[in-house]
Nucleic acid binder design. Structure first.
Length: 420
RNA sequence: CGGGAGAUGGCAGAGCUGGUCGAAUGCGGCGGUCUUGAAAACCGUUGAGGUUAACAGCCUCCGGGGGUUCGAAUCCCCCUCUCCCGGCCA
């Protein structure tokens, strides 16, 4: 949630920043107005409550003195009625406030480039040269000689956009998960194993709800949803907590399956396993003080980039422009891996700093001296496992249709499995 | 899924015959005295959010929601969660 005090104090700054995310100033004006009304209503209600409290305390005194209390009683009964009325009014205003406020995205950082969509993202750097093939590289779903992915049977037992890995793909995917987690641990992230089902409060905390309910799989009759990313359980581990500052930054990593309805993705990436309803991912989440979030952000980007480099996968870093930035993010750097079959770079990781946006929703704070301060939360895919698998398949494919294995993965595939 | 007990401040744990209770006490934390230093002992301090120039005052919060009352942590109803017993199960 955005800072309503900032909105009140410096409307121009907020409006200017959110222009990058194409948020209409009118909406913000409305928000400011409602926020002001809430405050005013609260003041009114509180003065009535103060009166009620003060007068109620007179009862034991009057009784001791043997005074008549009937008049006082009548007075307070009347006041009570008014309190109920004003309380109802306040509730309505607050509902209105949250209905707007929870749907306003985070403010982009000042260094986020302007732009409509992904066309305007800014490439920061490229790492590793794509290697030259002396044959025409195939796309991953064309490498059918090795029988690594079974699309038809995945659909048969579930529905479209579900698939089955087998043979070498299963082995490599599992090796990747272990490798990534070990890699992250060596960079100071500690490992967690988490629930794949979380409640609405958690999803509200990280910003998936209330606005993006359509993208989530919900369990019927329960207050539970399948997680769209481990970011949700990981970040919310600390919801409603006040963390001593000395314990920051908290750096966490977790493997999980991710589940997304991808309601708006019809027709895109329908072939292969680029875009699935279920996919594996190793995630990074950090909770930091306000001062150190930039430094940790860079560490996370570097961690993901180095991981790709260690796997020998050419990739580039891209700074998202305002229009392409996610709802909760103040700043995002995507890592795009080179897919020779497609002949282009495709997103494989995305690292975001949400500043205090999620922390305000989830009430994640830290204590500095006597003060409680909203933390900064950051998240990033270490790497999406399925897409990494694709990248390995396409970048390491041989002329005969088999796939070589990156050296760093080999220890994770012992005892040797036959990969072909 | 059935039966029983419970949910209070960082933790433990009183209060629950309704009224100066945001809440005793212990532990922990912080500050101090003492000490070469530390421990012990002693003194003080120590929940969160909002309003505000203000750590003055005021309001809200004793799992969540609703009710009774002038007044509720305390009484009533609903929900959720936790623990114990049984059932089922990896």
């Amino acid at each position: 949630m955005i800072d309503l005090k900032l909105l009140e104090r410096d409307f121009e700054q907020v409006a200017e920043a959110l222009k990058k995310k194409r948020i209409d100033e009118k909406l913000l004006l409305k928000l400011k107005e409602v926020s002001g009304k809430v405050k005013e209503q609260k003041r009114l209600l509180e003065s009535l409550q103060a009166k009620q409290n003060a007068n109620s305390k007179l009862f034991p005194v009057y009784q001791k003195e043997g005074k008549d209390i009937s008049q006082l009683k009548a007075l307070l009964a009347q006041n009570k009625e008014q309190i109920a009325k004003e309380q109802e009014a306040l509730r309505e205003l607050e509902d209105k406030l949250y209905a707007i406020a929870l749907n306003v995205p985070n403010l982009p950082d000042s260094d986020v480039p302007e732009g409509e969509d992904e066309e305007h993202n800014v490439e920061l750097k490229r790492v590793l040269e794509p290697k030259a093939f002396d044959f025409k590289p195939k796309e991953h779903w064309e490498l059918d000689a090795i029988e690594w992915i079974d699309f038809e049977r995945g659909v048969k037992i579930s529905k479209s956009r579900f698939s089955v890995l087998k043979n070498g793909a299963s082995k490599v995917a599992r090796a990747l998960i272990n490798y990534m987690i070990d890699f992250n641990e060596s960079h100071g992230f500690s490992e967690y194993t988490l629930p794949y089902l979380v409640n609405a409060k958690a999803l509200l905390g990280t910003g998936q709800l209330p606005k993006f309910e359509d993208d989530l799989f919900k369990i019927e009759g329960e207050d539970l949803y399948l997680i769209p990313t481990a970011e949700v359980p990981l970040t919310n581990l600390y919801q409603d907590e006040i963390i001593p500052k000395e314990r920051l930054p908290l750096k966490m990593t977790a493997y999980s399956e991710c589940f997304r309805k991808e309601a708006g993705s019809a027709g895109r990436d329908t072939r292969g396993i680029i875009r699935q309803h279920q996919f594996s991912k190793v995630e990074l989440v950090s909770i930091t003080s306000q001062e150190e979030s930039d430094a940790v952000f860079n560490e996370m980007v570097e961690c993901a980039s180095d991981l790709l480099t260690s796997l020998g996968l050419p990739h580039r870093l891209v700074m998202l422009c305002g229009g392409d930035l996610g709802f909760s993010a103040a700043k995002t750097i995507d890592l795009e891996v080179w897919l020779p079959g497609q002949g282009r770079y495709r997103e494989i990781s995305s690292v975001s700093n949400t500043r205090d946006f999620q922390a305000r929703r989830a009430k994640i704070r830290y204590k500095e001296g006597k003060k409680n301060i909203l933390a900064h939360t950051l998240n990033g895919s270490s790497l999406a496992v399925g897409r990494t698998l694709i990248a390995i398949m396409e970048n390491y494919q041989q002329a005969d249709g088999t796939v070589a294995i990156p050296d760093v993965l080999k220890p994770y595939l012992e005892p040797k499995v036959k990969i072909e």
